[in-house]
Simulated assay, not measured.
Amino acid sequence: MNETIQTQLNHRSIRAFKDQALTPEQLNTLYDVARHTSTSMFLQQMTILHLTDPVKRAAVREIGGQPYIGANGDLLIFVADLHRNQLIRHRAGNDDGRLHTLDVFLQAYEDATLAVQNVLTATESMGLGGVILGSINDDPKALIKALNLPPMTFPVLGLQIGVPDQSPQLKPRLPKEWMAFENDYPTDLDWDVMASYDQVVNTYYDLRNANQRIDTFTDQINGAKIATQPLLRDEIIEVLHAQGLALDLELQ
């Protein structure tokens, strides 16, 4: 056990922040952490937008449907960015090469995702808090328009960070027996272990002050979260194609 691991094991999403922006020094430290994150093939296909414009922050909040988005604290949007490398190739007189393929887009997507996690860990190590925002892509077409993003880019995740104004409980995670295996994926899982975990999750929601929902993990998996229903998020392939990305991925 060391300080870094302790910070990681103590992770909890913070959704209430004090009315206090990060200092330039703090932001630059986090930018440097993002810059030094592992990158596929050293293509460095990730960009960060720090949104301070209240109009843009409000637009992202409306898209995500969560009141804390763009409220107190700082809002970062991590972008899969192939536009920069496209410009580099054009300046040298080259065509786009493989930039329009799903493979290269996924490399950019992975670059952005890894940077988000690294920045969040660094944020928490500084005594700050944060929450990863997958909800920014509840309407990817509207988000790209609101952020005025150029072709060959796609917003992957948001990250709201700042000085915590709450101290939520740790959310219980799936037991290791269901997540870590030696060599082979098991053909059967121990449902008694899951039943015990469901009880732990149920107790967590029962006792949590911020939200008096009574729920279990399996209830959520069998509920509305991934039930069959049309969502704007399902237009992601069309949006990617409109951005010039993953063109070799066929529309169904």
Rank of each mutant, 00 (worst) to 15 (best):
M1K: 11
N2L: 14
T4L: 15
T4H: 04
T4C: 14
I5N: 13
I5G: 08
Q8G: 06
L9G: 05
N10T: 13
N10M: 12
H11W: 14
H11R: 13
K18S: 12
T23V: 07
L27F: 14
T29S: 08
D32T: 10
S38D: 12
S38I: 15
S38E: 09
F42W: 12
L43G: 11
Q44I: 11
M46G: 03
M46H: 08
I48F: 07
L49G: 05
L51D: 04
P54S: 14
P54A: 12
V55P: 05
V55I: 14
K56A: 10
R57L: 03
R57K: 15
A59V: 09
A59G: 09
R61D: 08
R61F: 09
I63C: 02
G64D: 06
G64C: 09
G64Q: 08
G64V: 04
G65L: 11
Q66R: 13
P67R: 11
I69C: 07
A71R: 04
L75T: 04
V79R: 07
V79N: 01
A80R: 00
A80Q: 00
A80C: 08
D81N: 15
R84Y: 05
R89H: 02
A92V: 05
G93Q: 10
N94A: 14
N94R: 15
D95E: 08
D96P: 07
T101A: 01
L102V: 10
D103Y: 06
D103R: 11
V104M: 07
V104N: 05
A108Y: 02
A108V: 01
A108L: 03
D111K: 06
T113R: 05
A115M: 05
A115Y: 00
V119A: 02
S125T: 10
M126H: 12
I132C: 08
I132P: 01
N137M: 05
D138V: 04
N148G: 07
P151H: 02
G158C: 08
L159A: 00
L159P: 00
L159S: 02
Q160C: 06
Q160A: 04
V163Y: 13
D165L: 00
K171Q: 10
P172E: 10
R173L: 11
P175G: 13
P175V: 13
K176E: 14
W178K: 12
D184S: 15
T187G: 12
D192F: 06
Y204I: 11
Y204F: 15
Y205G: 14
R213N: 12
T216V: 13
T216A: 07
T216R: 01
Q220G: 10
I221L: 15
I221T: 14
I226R: 14
I226S: 12
I226C: 09
R233E: 01
E235I: 07
V239F: 02
L240G: 01
H241L: 08
A242W: 00
A242K: 03
Q243D: 04
L245S: 04
L245N: 03
A246D: 02
L247Q: 14
L247F: 07
L249S: 09
E250P: 08
L251A: 04
L251W: 03
Q252G: 09
